[in-house]
Structures are given as C-alpha cells and as structure tokens.
Design a protein around this nucleic acid. Structure first.
Length: 446
RNA sequence: GCGGCCGUAGUUCAACGGUAGAACGCCGCCCUGUCACGGCGGAGGUCGUGGGGUCAGCACCCAUCGGUCGCGCCA
C-alpha cells in the first residue's frame, strides 16, 4: 500500500499527516469523541476521532472490532497528563482526519481481549484463523520460530550441511511406530516417520548434516504430547570418538536455543509468564540403570530392569535431578540394545546395552539420539538379528558398504520443545495446525 | 484400546430435587481524555442427545454422542 506508515514508525512522524492501515483492536467510545487502538504487524497506536471532525465521528461510530481500516490522520504528541507510560506509542496518538473501511468484520464469537482471552483448547482449535490474531497465541509461534531458527543457526555455525529429507518413503524398514500409508499411483507408499536413514546416508557424503522436516506418526495416541504431524529437527555427525560427542553437540544446540529465545523473545516470555528451563554448566548424565536406581532410592518404586523409563519415571527422575543439581535437564543413556532400532551402536563392553541417549527436561523427553553402527559387517549382523529385509534398505546399506566413519546424531520435535519451554499443558497449543487422531483442522467426528 | 472427570447463554464458568444466573461479548441510550474504558437498559437457554425412576430433574440412574485428563502405545 503506497504511502502507508507502519505503526512502529509513527513516533518519528509527530506533527505530520500520515496514512496507517490495520485492524481495530479495542474501541473506547466516549460519546462525543471516540478512541480506538489500531493494530498492524508492527504494533498498536491509539487513534482518536475528535468532535471537530463530525464526518469522522459519524463514520467511526459504526466501526467494530477487527474491521480493517485505512486511516489518514495527524500524529500528535499526547498532552502530558494523557501519556500512558510503558505502553507502545503511549506518548503519541493519531488524530483521525479520514477513514476508509477496507473490510468490515463479523462480531467476534468470543472475548479476544488480552485479559479476557481464556478458551478451551477445542474452541481455540475450532477457531484457529481468528485466534491466531491474539497476542498470546502469536507469542507461542514467535518463540517457535526462534527455536527452529536457532537450531538452524547453531548447526550452520558448526559446519552442518542442511539437506531436504523426503516425505514419501518406500516400505518401512525401521519398525517402531505406526506409519501412514498413501496411494502412490498403482502402488503403496508411506509417509516418513523419521529422516533417520536418509540423514545417515547424507552424512556419509557430507560428514555433518541436518534437516528441518515434517515427520508423520500414525500412533493411536491420545495424549497431551502426541501429534501425527511433527516438525523434526534432525542432526547427524561423522568422526566422533563416542556417543558423548553427540551428547555434547545436542547439549550445545539446546543451550544455544535457550540463549536465542532469551535474547529475542523477552516480550513473548513475559506475556506468557514463561520461565525457561535451567541448563547448568554440565548437564547431569546417567545410564538407564543408574536412573532406575535413583528412582528406587528416592521414591521406593522399583522400576529396575524395565526396558525404558515410563512417563512417571521421567517425571520423577527430573524431580530428583532438579533437587540435587538445579538442572531442569538430564541425559539418560544406555538402553537395552534389542529394544531400540537396529542401527544404534551397542556398548562394546556390555553389548546388551547401547550407546543411545535421551535428553529429558521437566519430565518429558526432548531429544533422542546416540552413536550409530558405522561398520558394514556389524550393521548387516544387526539387520539379520532384527529380522529385517536388506532389500528394503538397499540405499542405506550401500552407503555403509563404502566406508563410513564413526558417527552419531540426534533429533527433537519442535512442538515439544515449544511446549516445554513455555510450560504449555498440551502440545496442540504449540502447533499452529495440529493433526491428531480426532482432528485435521476440523474435528473428524463431525 | 482401557480408566477417571466433564458437557448449562456466542465465550468462560456458577448455582440448585421445587422461578435458569454471573462475567465478557452482542444490541440500544448516555458520556469531550479514555487506556484491552465507564453508567443505564435490553436481547440471548427446549441445561449435548435418548430413555428411566420421582408429585416434581439441569441436578439422580442407564445408554449414546462429544470433550478432556491419565495409562497403554509412541517421540
């Protein structure tokens, strides 16, 4: 729009006649004079229709919340007694001389005011398009943008190469979670549940690689932490000495993300009353066995020998670690080899346990990864033991046939980090358009 | 898939075996300095649906649908 001034720049135009465009955010009709706040992507400003402009008053009386307006007006410094300290543009206001309605809006179906906004999740999701205008909802996704941005930035700073992982995959080799099947011409294909095998292939050519991609899980899970479509942040690195190198890189990544969110999203964190998790100098790290011992010792609940930590174990371990060290994070490594995917590197000294690891924070798994098998013969041995069909992962195996250095990697879900970082109760709040068993934009049951 | 809890106005929630309520939103009127205003008035509900027991049900019981939380599964 020609001649339009962004609201954030109005303060540099005091005394001038300007044009702004945006949405009506709040109305305060005083009768003979009308105030309302206008909002554009850069901020808000109070506009005032004075009694001296009768035509403007008349027009402005009809205007309602969320109408889109183009306003001509004069930027005035507010009289000292009317300055609103601390508010954006609290010391100026726009005296309206002309109004053009670019689009009217229907009455809002619920309270969109800052304090009044309090919707049930289903109402929020049923009205996603409108709700996205609310500052608290926008704050969540601004933080999420930073998280993904910071991941990318940290990876690139550490010489990782970004590649695009495919979403359509042939018959699934990995096992594990359920997959979505899609029609592929006259054949069947699947939506990827992980770029795992591809990132290992690319790593074998580029040494350090990462990807930001969608993954799809057809798990019949109805919980506060599962979605069927997830943004996965994946990394894989060659020439490691051991799984600890992968752990350190993962830790550095998370630390950098926390720093960037702190740096860039102060306003959003304040609005959401969010307190970032604490990462101490060296994140506490325990083997699964040690973790289970700690839970037994502290809570007298015997989960020793279980193949993994269940949600209650994860919560309790995090509580223990928080109490002992102040850290909200804890690494757990050394899972039963046979319970994890075939490519995870077994501990050479205790082959029943592997060099896979998880990073937990505030009772929930944030990230998982570890060292992978890099030698072809060992990989083939696992393929056999795991009863997999080598033909189905031919391309993957081909990479390892021709020499791959010791390597490992990690992955985490952007929505989960967003949720955990902000203390949200349900992962759906951390996803703009969440897909789950019951919903693809609309509820599936209707 | 299993279990707990919930379903009342547009929204968020109360109340109660005996007349259906509030806040915000909406509509109307008033307000020349408001600050995600204020004042007065008004509209808006077959209490998710279907059965049952009761003199009487929104409330109790059963079924069903929907929601939500937990578990399982999974990341």
């Amino acid at each position: 729009m020609r001649n339009r001034i962004y609201i954030k720049d109005l303060k540099d135009n005091v005394g001038k006649e300007v044009i702004i465009a945006g949405w009506v955010d709040v109305r305060r009709d005083q009768g003979k004079m009308v105030f309302f706040d206008m909002r554009d992507m850069t901020g808000k400003v109070q506009c005032v229709a004075l009694p001296s402009h009768a035509d403007v008053i008349e027009k402005v009386k009809e205007v309602r919340l969320e109408w889109v307006l183009k306003i001509t007006g004069k930027v005035n410094a507010r009289p000292p007694k009317n300055v609103k300290a601390g508010a954006m543009n609290g010391d100026i206001e726009l005296e309206i001389t002309g109004v053009e309605v670019l689009a009217p809006a229907e009455p809002l179906p619920f309270d969109m005011s800052l304090d009044g906004y309090n919707l049930e999740l289903t109402t929020e999701l049923d009205n996603r398009a409108l709700v996205l205008r609310h500052p608290k909802v926008q704050a969540v996704f601004k933080v999420q943008e930073t998280i993904i941005d910071a991941f990318r930035e940290f990876m690139k700073k550490n010489m990782f190469f970004e590649f695009q992982a495919p979403s359509i995959t042939p018959a699934v080799a990995e096992g594990g979670s359920e997959v979505f099947q899609v029609n592929y011409f006259d054949k069947k294909a699947f939506l990827t549940q992980s770029p795992q095998l591809y990132k290992q292939i690319v790593m074998s050519a580029f040494e350090r690689v990462f990807s930001v991609n969608k993954i799809f899980r057809a798990e019949p899970s109805a919980t506060t932490r599962h979605l069927t479509e997830v943004v996965s942040l994946d990394a894989e690195m060659a020439f490691i000495d051991g799984w600890e190198d992968v752990k350190d890189m993962a830790e550095g990544t998370v630390k950098f993300i926390l720093e960037e969110v702190t740096k860039r999203n102060g306003a959003e964190l304040k609005l959401l009353k969010a307190e970032l998790p604490v990462m101490i100098e060296k994140t506490p790290t325990f083997s699964l066995t040690e973790a289970q011992e700690k839970i037994f010792k502290e809570y007298k609940r015997d989960v020793r020998g279980e193949k993994d930590l269940n949600p209650q174990d994860e919560r309790e371990l995090c509580e223990i670690v928080k109490k002992e060290t102040g850290s909200d994070f804890v690494f757990v490594y050394g899972y039963p080899t046979r319970k994890k995917p075939f490519y995870v590197y077994p501990n050479p000294e205790v082959p029943e346990f592997n060099h896979g690891m998880d990073l937990l924070c505030r009772g929930l798994e944030w990230l998982s990864g570890g060292r992978r098998i890099n030698k072809y013969d060992q990989l083939m041995e696992h393929v056999k033991i795991w009863n997999m069909d080598p033909k189905k992962i031919k391309m993957f195996l081909e990479a390892f046939k021709y020499g791959v250095p010791p390597e490992g990697g990690f992955a985490f879900g952007a929505e989960r980090i967003t949720m955990q970082l902000l203390g949200l109760k349900n992962i759906r709040e951390a996803c703009m358009f969440p897909r789950d068993m019951e919903r693809i934009d609309e509820r599936l049951s209707e």
